[in-house]
Amino acid sequence: MTQPTPIPTEPAPLLRIAGLKTHFFTDDGVVKAVDGVDLTVEPGKTLCVLGESGCGKSIMARSILRIVDRPGRIVGGSITYRAADGRSVDLAAMSPTSAAIRQIRGSDIAMIFQEPMTSLGPIQKIGKQIVETILLHRRMSKAEAKETAIEMLNRVGIPRPRERFEAYPFELSGGMRQRAMIAMALCCQPRLLIADEPTTALDVTTQAQILDLIADLKEEFGMAVMLITHDLGVVAEVAEDVAVMYLGKVVEKGDVYSIFEEPKHPYTRALLESVPRLGVRHAGRLPAIEGMVPHPLVRPTGCPFRTRCRAFMPGICDVHQPELQRQGRTDVACFLHNPVPAHG
């Protein structure tokens, strides 16, 4: 053991992702959507995964539950989940269709998605879809499952839940559908909830309600939440820990205060600068990150962010790949802070 553990007193993480690689084998070439992600989710905490669209955060989340569609597949790394009985399993090593992973899906780890409009079965009643989930994982009679489902619909703030139980998804508004989705995800009291941009498709007031709801339920059920978002406002509101992703890699991670107060990676800094703040006067336009996300098939050599980085150091950043290393209060992958390896 050459690697020193940063804080030895910390409780063991609920989920530890190490060196995860999920690649898509398309006709045009290999798209490395997730290319070496390291993350930990602590029990009972909220981790926000922040990044632009296309940075691989959704694919990373789906890799955890092993629901990445073909032609994508996990080609490396591990996803260690510590179950309630204390045993650890590597989700990355499981077969995506095995009974073992199905046992974990929906029961231990549940997920809600970005599109409440299309994420529910279109021609099945809401109640039936929730009852179905309960019966998959709990030994219950149908009547009990129905009562549980109605209770859950009530808990997520759906008015007249007994009537809504019989409703079809197309009869509900977007916000109501997302509430129903949450009810369905939480009906088996998971230990980790993965929320993949749960508020992106909703209007602003509904967004806040849904975020509050997730935060309340997190406290109530004592579960951990992994919230995937590109919205810094969401991060500021709910996050305890933050991981910033760029081109399939985590470039910086730490607790939310450290990241907001003392961002180290140029990408994190640029992200924070591009948000307007109350009380701060900007001269002229808001600063934006220069350039565009590179074509998914043409990954830059060395540091993935170097093509857009203001602190680009030729001969270093385009030659070596920075590793995630603890610098002060956060982990960062950047040669501004990390030592440059002697020979590549």
């Binding site: 539950l65 629901i67 974990i104 929906g106 599109e115 021609i123 989930t133 994982h137 369905m184």
Partner: peptide, 29 residues
């Protein structure tokens, strides 16, 4: 490849179950 199929899979349904209950059911129309 619709999102609701992913949802059903994330719920822990077996492939055969979810195939018949969701996409096939819709494709039957």
């Amino acid at each position: 490849y619709r999102p609701y199929v992913v949802t059903a899979r994330a719920k822990g349904m077996s492939e055969f179950q979810l195939l018949l209950r969701y996409p096939v059911r819709v494709a039957l129309n």
